[in-house]
Design a protein around this nucleic acid. Structure first.
Length: 463
DNA sequence: TTTAGGG
DNA sequence: CCCTAAA
């Protein structure tokens, strides 16, 4: 098994890290999967054993952000471990990043190596492709906190992303070029195997209720001064033209008929009604039709998306694609507000931004890291950071309980990122949250800060 | 306008 | 995410 992978990696390496396909293409993981299945019987015992004894070790390793080599639990990790050992030092950095995520996503499914691996493997393919892609072109490893895995991972991406984004921004004064850019860029990657499952997920998801409400409102006041105002002052104004094109497309499609067929009366009624405090109740009345309509839109949109670039739910879309989606889905105003889930790359960009500019300088971060994504306002960044802090904190606590461990932890945000968040939280204490934690919850010294500090201190020690 | 914080 | 007070 490891032999296969090693060969693969060698090709990957011999291509000067340009052929990420060689590293993560389907066959590769099929091999792994097959191997793991065939090995399952023989490995089960060992896997179970290593999984258990490895788990503690893994947790500790994660604490110091030095994960990879200590994940004996998952088959993949073992192989990557082998690779890692064989890999020339020069390629360690970029490869590390890849392995990191892989092993983390593996980590959540190690409970059942034989079964879960297939899925997690698929996931890894997707992820590694993306990440690998990012990493390949950049090799700056300027990690602030010694070469921790996290640092590699983040910086690898970030340092690459930013220049590209700037370039994109400057080279595409009209958003149209921007989109062309992105589509052509995105296309090759999204045509992976994983697209299908993700698409289905997306289609099944219910639209948030608040969204339906707002779409109603937007329709009712389509030309209200607020929208005009917002559009005019919103920086994403330049995206308007493109957006409107999308809207035309969408509108051209038989959405309205569907509405009628659904007895759209429900939709109309709420208009007349005063839409004030009775939020929940009244919204719910008009929710169903809206939902259906929304699905319609989604379907139609999906058609386009699947044609141009295979849709992909909340994964790595590169914020630009998210923008595309957002604009197309929403009618009227600047950005689709309701819950565009944060992609990992976005989170990492945020983390990177915070590490570079400090907490609280959200506009800076927005300008520099999220320049090309019209959604994600500085407020969003702030909120997300708050959430990340919370997540990292709770994760820390969960770690101590150990028992809970893997599954629930952070399926979206890899531990490495949270780890980085904690580091940054230690460096740049969040304006008031940290204080409050210190003053309120921690009469003696401070629970949170001390732990994070310890973590932060222990990092270089271990590395 | 931007940040911080509550909801 | 949204809203809003404060700076």
């Amino acid at each position: 098994m490891s032999f296969l992978i090693v060969l693969d990696f060698n090709t990957f390496h011999s291509h000067k890290c340009l052929g990420i396909e060689h590293f993560s293409f389907a066959v590769d993981f099929d091999q792994i999967k097959i191997d793991s299945e065939s090995l399952h019987s023989s490995l089960t015992l060992e896997g179970e054993r290593t999984k258990q004894e490895g788990h503690d070790e893994k947790l500790r390793a994660d604490d110091v952000c030095s994960g990879i080599n200590k994940h004996p639990g998952a088959v993949n990790c073992r192989t990557t471990d082998d690779i890692f050992n064989l890999a020339p030092a020069s390629s360690n950095a970029s490869f590390l990043g890849n392995v990191d995520f892989g092993s983390y996503s593996q980590g959540f499914s190690t409970t059942d190596i034989g079964v879960d691996l297939s899925f997690a493997g698929g996931h890894n393919v997707a992820f590694d492709q993306k990440e690998g892609k990012h990493m390949i072109s950049s090799s700056t490893g300027s990690s602030g906190c010694s070469g921790s895995t996290t640092a590699c991972l983040d910086d690898e991406n970030m340092s690459d992303d930013r220049p590209m984004k700037r370039k994109r921004l400057s080279s595409s004064d009209s958003l149209k070029t921007n989109y062309e850019h992105n589509e052509s860029k995105i296309n090759p990657f999204n045509e992976g195997n994983r697209g299908d499952t993700l698409i289905t997920e997306k289609r099944l998801r219910k639209p948030p209720r608040r969204y339906s409400e707002e779409s109603v409102e937007q329709k009712s006041r389509s030309n209200s001064k607020k929208s005009a105002l917002k559009a005019s002052k919103d920086k994403s104004l330049h995206s308007e033209s493109h957006k409107q094109q999308w809207q035309k497309k969408v509108k051209a499609a038989p959405i309205i008929h569907k509405d009628k067929s659904f007895n759209g009366g429900c939709i109309q009624v709420p208009f007349g009604l005063p839409i004030e405090e009775g939020h929940s109740a009244k919204k719910r009345t008009c929710w169903e039709p809206e939902e259906i309509k929304d699905n319609r839109i989604l379907c139609i949109k999906d058609k386009y998306e699947v044609e141009s670039f295979s849709a992909e739910s909340e994964d790595e879309n590169t914020e630009d694609e998210c923008t595309t989606k957002g604009n197309s889905t929403q009618k009227g105003n600047s950005r689709r507000k309701h819950h565009i889930s944060w992609t990992l790359s976005e989170v990492m960009k945020l983390v990177e931004g915070v590490s570079e500019y400090g907490v609280g300088r959200w506009t800076e971060i927005k300008r520099l890291q999220f320049a090309s994504s019209s959604h994600r306002t500085s407020v969003d960044l702030k909120d997300k950071w708050r959430n990340l802090l919370k997540a990292s904190d709770t994760q820390l606590q969960n770690r101590r309980k150990v028992v809970l461990g893997r599954k629930q932890a952070s399926q979206q945000v890899p531990e490495s990122v949270l780890c980085r968040v904690r580091e940054l939280a230690a460096i740049y204490p969040y304006p008031r949250e940290n204080k409050s934690k210190e003053s309120c919850s921690a009469p003696s010294t401070s629970s949170f800060k001390s732990t994070t500090n310890n973590m932060f201190v222990s990092l270089p020690t271990v590395m």
